[in-house]
Design a binder for these strands. Structure first.
Lengths: 346, 346
DNA sequence: CTGAAAGCGCTAACAG
DNA sequence: CTGTTAGCGCTTTCAG
């Protein structure tokens, strides 16, 4: 009844309110507030009036309206596999280190390594146009990505070497060489000859590359990979349980087991200990990636370490190169560093 | 040069494109696409034409434009303390269980328990108007929240009993009673009399409530809390190291130590073992909240368990009650359930 | 049942 | 230096 204007969709002050209070036009307010280095200058007097009004009303520009106009959201979307997996935490942190500095927001999705979720993520990023995408794709085919790219110009950076698309930047490529080096170290330095491997056996990254690294090292050393040397397990603690159980049931235990990630390695150790085995005396275990759990488990896990937070920062940096137009052209590839961290588990 | 229209801000098809292709007006397209149960009906023929055009162009409505119009984003903001803390993972998952179903997006921020970050979060939620907020506030004062609420109608649900604001829903209230029960159990069932406690000593939740629960149980049992029984430590593994080290250096070790969260409990166990102590023989340790690390550590941790994923779902549900207008009025309070899970560490 | 037209709040020419 | 104006892409009256 007392309403005068149309529906007051929100009680937030708008630029108009600020303008009215300051006695100027809304575009002047806009100019003061978005002080992009346009050579235009505003008289110190009006500027101050406006700033006062802003203060008084606690005005905050509406990002939706701004986005609609400028066609960018100040927001990137990040798809990780699983928020519960500590592997992703430093990566997300690294990304946020960067986006915080650039005043961008981060939308996080879990794919759970499910194809449908990965597709949904892509579509959501289309509908709610984000300025860039960082993803750790697992199931997405090159075609999916292709279709997406055709429909949208949003730059994408992928984590993991598996995405093979000419206009997607990729950070990764550590899986094969790092696994190779690690297994080689197991053979040459630690003297193991019967080395087992736990990984998923499907085609989803990073399983295949790590298996390849393992096989290359074994073959180069002239070691035979016995049929039961490669056991199946998901990239979780349970996967590790499962893999180790399979080894134990087979009877002829390898002397060392390389697990394709550290969660599996931990599961494997837990399972071995539960079965009354000593680690590393009866069987050594090695993992991939340094997660906090690696030093909680006893014995602490020997692992391949990458600087995950740095990788996160790098992902963001690479993405922003494109968002800001500093880089155009075909997708680039960045290989991460890694090193062995030797602890007690092998 | 070949451009006809103004700048093609994006190559995404718009509703106009669909309309043109289908030979109708864009408002008709809108009506077909946002099939809100308005009694208005569209002829099956036009509808099909439009749907075909949508399909052909792979059209996805632009959420920014829609949001500007409808004044809601289909998005909620979640502020957690720290993405690396496993405590938050099932909570975030629970929230996403709910939002996925309702087709809402989730914006995640870490506060790192830093006041400035918490304020920034609130302001960001104002600028980019989200439809609702779920937060685990640590440093924010009631005044901060008050100011925020005055400026915005966005509903807020807080995790933890510490927020005392009449229009914020709260889920929590487990800290004091659960700690009390746990310590009581330590005394009555396990027969401990010298029980230590590790927590932060500042006023930031959930420290104080847990300390209170501990003190109440001790006092009720007529047990004296010796000066060195309460040790300082952050809510991290390092905090636990630190606390346990303090106990050890003091010489007179309690027989049992309750750590205000499980990360600290793990740090404490690690430190005790490093010092050559046996857990639980020399000193028992108990934690708060069931995180995966609790069963990786040896001995596995005895803890207070809450159904964190369920709490996440509940948070979202409570929030949506308000987003959808099903609930209005003063803030409600929801107490979570908990129970003791007895494992090897005490 | 469908089209025309009016904005949501903001930015960015274009005039003055 | 500042105001006027024209949209960004969509939803939603209001006419027809």
């Amino acid at each position: 009844m007392t309403e005068k204007k149309s529906r007051p969709t929100s009680n937030l002050p708008t630029m108009q309110d600020v303008a009215k209070l300051a006695g100027v036009s809304h575009s002047t307010v806009s100019r003061v507030l978005s002080q992009n280095a346009t050579s235009i200058r505003i008289s110190e007097e009006t500027r101050q009036k406006i700033l006062d009004a802003v203060e008084q009303l606690n005005y905050q520009p509406n990002m939706i309206a701004r986005s609609l106009r400028t066609q960018h959201m100040q927001m990137i979307a990040v798809m990780i596999g699983d928020i519960s997996n500590a592997f992703y935490h430093p990566i997300v942190r690294g990304i946020q280190d960067f986006t915080d500095q650039h005043d961008y927001e981060v939308l996080i999705s879990n794919s759970d390594h499910i194809y449908e979720h990965e597709r949904r993520f892509l579509n959501a990023s289309l509908r709610r146009p984000v300025d860039g995408i960082i993803m750790a794709p697992h199931c997405l085919t090159s075609e999916d990505l292709d279709t997406f790219i055709k429909h949208s110009r949003v730059p994408i950076v992928a984590l993991g070497a598996q995405v093979d698309h000419p206009s997607i930047d990729v950070v990764g490529g550590t899986s094969e060489p790092a696994t190779y080096e690690a297994v080689k170290w197991l053979i040459e330095v630690k003297g193991h000859r019967r080395i087992g491997f736990i990984s998923t056996l499907n085609q989803m990254p990073p399983g295949p590359s790590r298996v390849r690294g393992y096989m290359r090292a074994m073959e180069e050393a002239g070691l035979t990979i016995e049929p039961n040397f490669i056991q199946q397990g998901e990239f979780t603690i349970e996967g590790g349980h499962h893999g180790m159980r399979a080894f134990i049931q087979h009877g002829k235990l390898p002397t060392a087991i390389f697990a394709a990630n550290s969660l599996m390695a931990i599961g494997a150790i837990l399972e071995a200990k539960a079965a009354g085995l000593q680690v590393p005396e009866d069987v050594g275990v090695m993992g991939f990636d340094d997660i906090p759990e690696a030093t909680i488990i006893s014995p602490p896990l020997t692992i391949v370490r990458r600087d995950l937070r740095q990788i996160g920062r790098q992902l963001a940096e690479i993405l922003f190169d494109r968002i800001e137009g500093k880089v155009t052209g075909p997708g680039r590839f960045f290989q991460s560093d890694w090193k062995l961290v030797i602890r007690g588990s092998i």
